[in-house]
Design a binder for these strands. Structure first.
Lengths: 249, 249
DNA sequence: TAATCACATTGATCTCGGTCAATAAAACGG
DNA sequence: CCGTTTTATTGACCGAGATCAATGTGATTA
């Protein structure tokens, strides 16, 4: 990854990547993971024009909540976010974690109102895609529409496999699956597949996987005793990926 | 609903609706729930041309599996379907139940290959939308694209709330939520909101909600003792919707 | 640098819902 | 219509993971 400097990845938050806010899609290192994939140069230039590159959001800051009026979709540019939905009684569910190149807000399209809350897990930035402009642009750009559909469909896939995880997997399997999914996403972004930072709290992980915080701690500790991983606070080193794969179910 | 005859709904499968296979979108009773919503007459006529109205699928028959080559999206025309995904070890998860007007196969778009299996729960029929034609048609019909996005987004919403259910809800809350969701979907289709048939087995329900069959049986029985519902095999009568709502969490 | 606070770990105990087992009741095929 | 198979119900028991509680550790502010 172009922006990756030479500090060891383990102690390096993705947020600290100096991903220049003004870099256009054409020169963006996320290009091959991102929406513009497959667009011609002219189309890409047009898309580029409607994108608003916002300044960064601090840790804990909301990108949007269900209270905000729906206006835009977002693509993570640097850092990471979590999304949550709330039950009537205050309980809430962490529905996803989002990394550079990934879309946030797609579940708002149906009712054109945000149905979830998105919060930065670290200092992060996004590309903002005003939905009106995007829709307008899409009318003359079938390839863009197809990309959008493809993105939605990808999120659908992720959700289905999370259903399987939540409905059928044990605590060990859930955490093994979680670790591998992160390993994959980090390595897709040019980072180490075996050493990375978890930017979210144990509580967020637990919530997302349908577990108690204590269970996450215990399983992580046991994985460490068994030589599968090494834990350094929020840093994780995967020591035996093959064995972890075997635990995923 | 136009096709609904005068047999009491409780003992009447939706499959038995005589939903004529050849009826065009314009005259279809599902119009307002279905894809064509918002299309102009000319556009609708064009869409109508690419739709293949297949003959019916018997109970247990696959609409598609992950082994089949991806070709089409489907909209349920009559009856009902379930979709499943499989873990490596043979366990599988029922990811959804689908009723008339609802899309099946949207999670195939990303990789243009079916990522789940769809099976008829009763004698059912579908409208088949060959994806190539749909995509071609979409190029000149922005409204169709928007409808498609909207459909995907709606499914996303459903998946997120199922995550909440699977991750955070108790067995009672899960089943109360399940019953209300069906009540809503049946009444949206012109059926009784309080009396309906569950076309799927207890096993399917249990699997979908992340429970054991025995738990589903027990909770249903207890709900009946408490006067919330009446069970007549696969038939369900909701006796106290307000109280059931209160149990959803 | 200490004080505060949020987050993480570890242990002890409890409970919801799973598993095992035994009928019962539908659905199905001949 | 009957015998067989599948699906559903009910009971007894058990265990994975939740909850409760105490302690440790790392961040943030002054």
């Amino acid at each position: 990854m172009a922006q990756m400097n030479n500090v060891t990845p383990l102690f390096k938050d993705m947020a600290k990547l100096e991903h220049d806010h003004r870099v256009a899609c054409q020169e963006c290192s996320l290009y091959r993971l991102c929406l513009p994939l497959g667009l011609h140069n002219e189309d890409l230039a047009q898309l580029d024009k409607i994108i608003q590159r916002s300044q960064s959001h601090k840790r804990g800051e909301a990108l949007f909540t269900t209270e905000h009026a729906f206006k835009s979709l977002y693509v993570v540019r640097s850092g990471s976010f979590k999304t949550t939905i709330s039950a009537t009684n205050g309980r809430d569910q962490v529905t996803g974690f989002y990394f550079p190149g990934e879309f946030i807000g797609l579940d708002a399209l149906y009712q054109e109102s945000y149905q979830s809350n998105a919060k930065a897990l670290e200092t992060s930035s996004v590309c903002e895609l005003p939905f009106d402009s995007l829709q307008e642009l899409g009318k003359g750009m079938p390839q863009l529409q197809i990309q959008l559909l493809s993105r939605l469909s990808k999120e659908l896939l992720g959700d289905k496999s999370l259903m399987l995880l939540l409905g059928k997997k044990t605590a060990d399997e859930k955490l093994a699956t979680f670790l591998l999914s992160f390993s994959k996403r980090f390595s897709d972004r040019g980072f180490s597949a075996t050493e990375f930072h978890l930017t979210m709290s144990r509580g967020d992980i637990a919530n997302h996987l349908g577990l108690a915080v204590e269970t996450v701690s215990r399983v992580f500790s046991r994985f460490q005793e068994e030589g599968l991983i090494t834990i350094l606070g929020k840093g994780i080193v995967l020591r035996d990926i093959a064995k972890i794969k075997g635990l995923c179910g």
